[in-house]
Amino acid sequence: MTTAPDHHDGRPFDAVLCDLDGVIRHYDTSRVTELERASGLPEGSTAERAFAPGNGLPLLLGELTKEQWVDALAHDLSARVPPARARALSTAFAEAESWIDECVVDQLRRARASLPVVIVTNAAPWLDDDLAALGLTDLADHVVSSARVGVAKPDRRIYEMAAARAGVSPDRCLFVDDARENVAAAVALGMTGVHYREPADLRRALAVLTPPR
């Protein structure tokens, strides 16, 4: 475990705050797409409804179990497809397999040798089980999950909590996320923001941690 440095050593940040889904973890939704096509739904319809305010926000704030979320999503989709198909779509979405970008994981592990790394994620209540199953329990010094703290990005409070966990002020944090609005909120607090699209985005941001040869 690392601690925040007492001085900056010329670096633009003293802690890395990183999103989970879309950066470290990715999902295989091919089965969902297959079912959507068979149902005559536009691709992405299930995800759109899964994270619509009435379904997604209660989940991300820790107010729903997985079963309750699946039920709510199935009920929502049943307005567009038969109930059995709606249930199949919601179940397939909730049970989609995930995979880890090992390149990103390696970069974060290297960064953690120099400064604190905090995962800041809008996540479901079962995040701890997911991290254990993926072998990521030791990836970061701290995990700030919306379902646990009761506030979700882009609310400024979750960023402030993450910076406090890292032991540095917000203006000494690098924040990495695949959602522009989440990065914009971090930048508004004085953080260095990286809109993540590919591992090279993170690599460039962390290059300052590698001493010149």
Score class of each variant (00 low, 15 high):
residue 111 A to G: 12
residue 197 R to V: 13
residue 130 D to M: 00
residue 201 D to Q: 06
residue 143 V to G: 00
residue 65 T to V: 11
residue 112 R to M: 13
residue 16 V to M: 02
residue 167 G to L: 04
residue 72 A to Q: 12
residue 162 A to W: 09
residue 81 V to N: 05
residue 58 P to E: 00
residue 85 R to A: 10
residue 28 D to L: 09
residue 160 E to S: 13
residue 122 N to W: 04
residue 60 L to W: 09
residue 32 V to Q: 05
residue 196 Y to Q: 01
residue 41 L to P: 08
residue 104 V to W: 05
residue 185 A to H: 04
residue 123 A to I: 08
residue 23 V to M: 10
residue 119 I to N: 09
residue 183 V to P: 06
residue 182 N to H: 13
residue 159 Y to M: 03
residue 125 P to M: 11
residue 147 A to G: 10
residue 70 V to Q: 10
residue 151 V to A: 11
residue 168 V to L: 07
residue 43 E to N: 14
residue 185 A to L: 11
residue 88 A to S: 14
residue 147 A to L: 08
residue 78 S to I: 07
residue 83 P to F: 11
residue 136 L to V: 15
residue 67 E to V: 12
residue 119 I to F: 03
residue 6 D to S: 15
residue 121 T to H: 02
residue 122 N to H: 07
residue 183 V to F: 05
residue 129 D to G: 12
residue 131 L to H: 08
residue 146 S to L: 08
residue 63 E to S: 07
residue 46 T to D: 06
residue 20 L to V: 01
residue 54 G to Y: 12
residue 60 L to K: 08
residue 96 A to W: 02
residue 189 L to A: 04
residue 105 V to C: 03
residue 141 D to G: 00
residue 169 S to V: 03
residue 170 P to Q: 00
residue 205 A to V: 07
residue 124 A to Q: 07
residue 93 F to G: 04
residue 13 F to R: 02
residue 184 A to Y: 09
residue 71 D to N: 10
residue 85 R to Q: 13
residue 115 L to S: 00
residue 11 R to G: 07
residue 53 P to D: 13
residue 62 G to M: 02
residue 89 L to R: 09
residue 9 D to K: 13
residue 178 D to N: 10
residue 87 R to C: 07
residue 7 H to D: 15
residue 49 R to L: 05
residue 94 A to W: 02
residue 4 A to D: 09
residue 55 N to K: 06
residue 25 R to G: 11
residue 128 D to A: 14
residue 211 P to T: 15
residue 100 I to V: 15
residue 82 P to E: 05
residue 23 V to Q: 00
residue 72 A to G: 13
residue 30 S to R: 02
residue 50 A to S: 15
residue 112 R to Q: 14
residue 26 H to I: 03
residue 199 P to D: 10
residue 182 N to Y: 09
residue 129 D to T: 13
residue 209 L to F: 02
residue 8 H to S: 15
residue 94 A to E: 00
residue 179 A to N: 13
residue 124 A to I: 01
residue 75 H to C: 08
residue 173 C to D: 13
residue 67 E to G: 12
residue 40 G to S: 12
residue 178 D to A: 00
residue 114 S to Y: 01
residue 7 H to I: 14
